[in-house]
C-alpha cells in the first residue's frame, strides 16, 4: 500500500480516494485513543481504497493521463538516470551556441557494467528549477548537445538511452534565430546513421518535434501513463476548435496514450507503472524501467550495426495509414 504520509499533490480525479484514506486515518486514530480493536474494519476499508485506486487508474481518460504525465512529483530524466546507473557524469558542451541548455541533459553512465550515453529532456523539480530549465523546453543548442553526445557514443561504441519528457521544443525568438527547425531536422536524419543501439523512452510528456528530436531509435518505449503527441492538446484545441479550453476533447481525439500508440504501430514497448503512477512509487518505477532497458539493450546488442540501422529504418518506414486505389472515392 503506497504511503500517503508524504505531502502529496492531488489530481482532481484522486479526490474520492483521498477522502476514503482520510477516513481510514480517522478511524485508526480514534481506535488508538479508545483502545478498541478495529483491525478487521480497517483492513476492509484499506482493501476498498486499493480497489478504488485500481479502478481510477485503470480508466483514466487521455486528459487525466496527461495530468499524471505532467505531475510535478513524477520522476524526471535525471532521477531515472541517477537511479539506474552505477556511475554517471553529466557533460555540458554543445560546442557552438555559447551557452549550455539545462533543459536537455546528457552524459556518460555505467549501466549494468557497460558504459552508455544517456540523455533526455529535463523538467524542473520545483518552480525555481523549472524556470531555470525552461520547463523542459530545449533550445537548438540542447538538440545540438544531444547530437554531439550521440556521435561521441557512436565513436566509442556506447549504446544510447534517451529519455523524453517535454511539452515541446522552445518556441522563442532566440530559438528561431538559432535554427530550432534545423537542429531537430539534423538529429532526425543523423540518428538513422548511428551504428550503436538506441533505446528511446517517453517517461512523461512527449511533445511534438521537441520529443522526436531525440526520439529516433531502435526501440520506442513508453511508461503506462506517459503521452506522446503531435501537438499539445491545448495548441491543437486552439487551432482546430478555435478554443484552447477544449483541450480535453483534443487530447481524446489526438490519440496520445501509450495504448493508442501501440495500436497505431508506433510504440514497441509499453511499461506498466506502479499503482497510482510512477510518482507514487518511484523505486518500483525505476526497477521496471531498468529491467526493460536491460532486456531491450541485450536483444539489440546481438545485431550487427548494419542490421540495426536497417531495422531502425524499417521501423519508421512502415508508419502511416493510407490506401492505394485508382479512384479517389474510398475516403
Amino acid at each position: 500500500m503506497p504511503t500517503t504520509q508524504r505531502k502529496t499533490i492531488l489530481l482532481d480525479f484522486e479526490k474520492p480516494l483521498v477522502e476514503l484514506e482520510e477516513r481510514i486515518d480517522q478511524i485508526r486514530n480514534l481506535a488508538e485513543d479508545n483502545e478498541v480493536d478495529v483491525s478487521t474494519q480497517l483492513r476492509q476499508l484499506e482493501t476498498r481504497a486499493d480497489q478504488l485506486r485500481q479502478e481510477i487508474f485503470a480508466s483514466l481518460t487521455p486528459a487525466q493521463r496527461l495530468q499524471v504525465a505532467r505531475h510535478p512529483r513524477r520522476p524526471s530524466t535525471l532521477d531515472y538516470i541517477q537511479a539506474i546507473s552505477d556511475e554517471w557524469i553529466e557533460l555540458h558542451g554543445d560546442r557552438g551556441s555559447g551557452k549550455d541548455d539545462p533543459a536537455l541533459v546528457g552524459g556518460i553512465a555505467r549501466f549494468e557494467g557497460r558504459p552508455v550515453v544517456m540523455l533526455g529532456n529535463q523538467k524542473g523539480r520545483d518552480t525555481k528549477d523549472n524556470v531555470a530549465r525552461n520547463f523542459g523546453m530545449a533550445s537548438p543548442g540542447g538538440y545540438r548537445k544531444a547530437m554531439r553526445l550521440m556521435q561521441h557514443a557512436n565513436r566509442f561504441h556506447m549504446p544510447i538511452f534517451t529519455f523524453i519528457d517535454t511539452p515541446g521544443a522552445f518556441p522563442g525568438y532566440e530559438a528561431e534565430e538559432l535554427g530550432q527547425g534545423e537542429a531537430i531536422a539534423y538529429n532526425l536524419r543523423e540518428m538513422f546513421a548511428l551504428d550503436v543501439p538506441i533505446v528511446c523512452t517517453v517517461i512523461g510528456e512527449g511533445g511534438s518535434g521537441g520529443a522526436l528530436g531525440i526520439g529516433v531509435g531502435d526501440r520506442l518505449m513508453m511508461l503506462e501513463h506517459a503521452v506522446y503527441t503531435v501537438a499539445s492538446p491545448e495548441a491543437c484545441a486552439a487551432i482546430l476548435w478555435k478554443d484552447s479550453g477544449r483541450a480535453a476533447e483534443a487530447a481524446e481525439a489526438l490519440k496520445i496514450t501509450a495504448q493508442d500508440l501501440m495500436n497505431l504501430g508506433i510504440l514497441d514497448v509499453l511499461l506498466p507503472e506502479p499503482l497510482g503512477g510512477a510518482h507514487a512509487d518511484p523505486v518500483k518505477a525505476t526497477e521496471i524501467l531498468r529491467e526493460a532497458l536491460r532486456e531491450n539493450l541485450e536483444s539489440l546488442l546481438v545485431l550487427s550495426p548494419a542490421e540495426r540501422r536497417d531495422l531502425r529504418y524499417q521501423k519508421f518506414r512502415q508508419v502511416g495509414v493510407f490506401a492505394e486505389t485508382a479512384h479517389p472515392s474510398t475516403v
Binding site: 532526425l188 503527441t229 503531435v230 508508419v319
Partner: peptide, 21 residues
Amino acid sequence: ARMQEGMLSLMQMAKISGALE
C-alpha cells in the same frame, strides 16, 4: 504536421529524414 492524423503525422518527419539519410 497534419493534426488530424495525430502521431502518424509526426512520425512522417522521421520517415522522410531517414530516406534522405
